[in-house]
């Protein structure tokens, strides 16, 4: 499953411009604590969070995150989006909560990947 598949399944809004959404998503990680993501997220995870500040891009880049889904309709500032575009990390958003996004995604990833 790719980032654009998730976009379609969850009706996500793509906030970053000009980044291909073809990265393979291997799993999901829900966290609002950057240290936790640094320690435990895996390469190819889609990261579901409420955090919107600039540091999320650096963390995602270092961990090889496939993309970031920002929940609860929160919107990152332009600086974060600009940095994400530079680093090639897609940021998508939804009005849904982390619980619901993870719930739907868990099922979707399971179905296609056993």
């Amino acid at each position: 499953m790719r980032v654009d598949d998730l976009r379609d399944i969850l009706s996500l809004q793509v906030l970053t411009e000009g980044i291909p959404l073809d990265a393979e998503v291997r799993g999901g990680y829900v966290s609002d604590l950057l240290s936790d993501v640094m320690a435990n997220a895996k390469e190819g995870d889609i990261w579901i969070t409420l955090q919107t500040h600039l540091n999320i891009v650096a963390v995602a880049t270092m961990k090889g995150i496939a993309g970031i889904i920002i929940v609860n309709g929160r919107r990152p500032d332009e600086e974060t989006l600009k940095k994400a575009s530079e680093e090639g990390i897609p940021i998508l958003s939804t009005k849904e909560t982390a619980f619901v996004v993870a719930g739907k995604l868990y099922k979707a990833l399971n179905v296609k990947e056993i």
Binding site: D32, L33, L34, S35, L50, Q51, T52, H53, N55, R74
Partner: peptide, 18 residues
């Protein structure tokens, strides 16, 4: 404004400053 914060990183790691 919802989501605006001047909290330092260590506060965010404590679960606050969102």
């Amino acid at each position: 404004q919802e989501g605006y914060s001047t909290a330092p990183d260590w506060v965010r790691e404590m679960g606050w400053g969102s």
